[in-house]
Amino acid sequence: MNWTAEQLRIADKYTCKDEIPENERRYKCHTCHRIVDESPCPVCGDVNPEIMCPLDNCDCSHEITGTIEYCPLCGEPVCPECGCHDVVQISRVTGYLQDVSGWNAGKQQELKDRQRYSVA
């Protein structure tokens, strides 16, 4: 992902999503699947909508990509083509594919640190 200068400025301004001031926050409600400006969600009343990363564009049209990148602000996996944070990362573990969101922090960091190679 080629982050713009403005996006990199935002990433340098905050070290995590929790540092974003209340008046600048946007939230993703996973109950009604909307982006809202306040918590609790004014549409469905969900009291725990997720603080949205300001670098998330939310509009990914890519079904599958061969690589994954990580957001410079929140560290979450993002689509390498558009920067959308709504991705599911899977990896092959002992012969089968598995969603890595259930892995512990150490195993997820090991996945981030892996070296990738292309056979030409």
Results as ranks from 00 to 15, higher is better:
Asn2Phe: 08
Trp3Gly: 03
Thr4His: 04
Thr4Tyr: 02
Glu6Thr: 10
Glu6Cys: 05
Gln7Glu: 02
Gln7Thr: 00
Gln7Asp: 01
Leu8Gly: 01
Arg9Pro: 00
Arg9Phe: 01
Asp12His: 13
Asp12Trp: 05
Tyr14Met: 01
Tyr14Thr: 04
Tyr14Lys: 02
Thr15His: 04
Thr15Trp: 00
Cys16Gln: 03
Cys16Pro: 00
Cys16Lys: 05
Lys17Phe: 00
Lys17Trp: 00
Asp18Arg: 13
Glu19Gln: 14
Glu22Thr: 07
Glu22Gly: 03
Glu22Gln: 07
Asn23Glu: 10
Asn23Cys: 00
Asn23Asp: 08
Arg26Phe: 08
Arg26Cys: 04
Tyr27Pro: 09
Lys28Leu: 00
Cys29Asp: 05
His30Glu: 03
His30Asn: 05
Thr31Met: 01
Thr31Tyr: 04
Cys32Thr: 05
Cys32Gly: 07
His33Val: 06
His33Phe: 09
His33Glu: 11
Arg34Asn: 12
Arg34Lys: 13
Ile35Gln: 08
Ile35Phe: 10
Val36Glu: 12
Cys41Ala: 09
Cys41Gly: 10
Cys41Pro: 07
Pro42Ile: 07
Val43Lys: 14
Val43Ile: 14
Val43Asn: 14
Val43Tyr: 14
Cys44Tyr: 07
Cys44Asp: 08
Cys44Glu: 06
Gly45Asp: 12
Gly45Val: 11
Asp46Gln: 01
Asp46Trp: 03
Glu50Ala: 15
Ile51Met: 11
Ile51Gln: 13
Ile51Thr: 14
Ile51Pro: 12
Met52Glu: 15
Cys53Lys: 14
Pro54Phe: 07
Pro54Arg: 09
Asp56Tyr: 07
Asp56Ala: 10
Asn57Phe: 02
Cys60Gly: 06
Cys60Ala: 08
Ser61Val: 14
His62Trp: 02
Glu63His: 05
Ile64Pro: 03
Gly66Ala: 13
Thr67Asn: 06
Ile68Lys: 12
Ile68Val: 15
Tyr70Val: 06
Cys71Val: 02
Pro72Tyr: 03
Pro72Gln: 01
Leu73Pro: 07
Leu73Ser: 10
Leu73His: 09
Glu76Ala: 12
Glu76Pro: 03
Glu76Phe: 08
Glu76Gly: 10
Pro77Gln: 13
Pro77Met: 12
Pro77Lys: 13
Val78Gln: 01
Glu81Leu: 11
Gly83Met: 08
Cys84Ser: 12
Cys84Arg: 05
His85Gly: 10
His85Cys: 02
His85Gln: 04
His85Lys: 03
His85Asp: 05
Asp86Gly: 08
Asp86Thr: 04
Val87Ala: 12
Val88Tyr: 06
Gln89Cys: 14
Gln89Ile: 14
Ile90Val: 15
Ser91Phe: 10
Ser91Thr: 14
Arg92Lys: 15
Arg92Pro: 10
Arg92Tyr: 12
Arg92Gln: 15
Thr94Pro: 00
Tyr96Cys: 15
Tyr96Ile: 15
Leu97Ala: 06
Leu97Gln: 06
Gln98Lys: 14
Asp99Gln: 10
Val100Ile: 15
Val100Thr: 15
Ser101Pro: 04
Ser101Gln: 08
Ser101Leu: 03
Gly102Val: 01
Gly102Glu: 01
Asn104Gln: 00
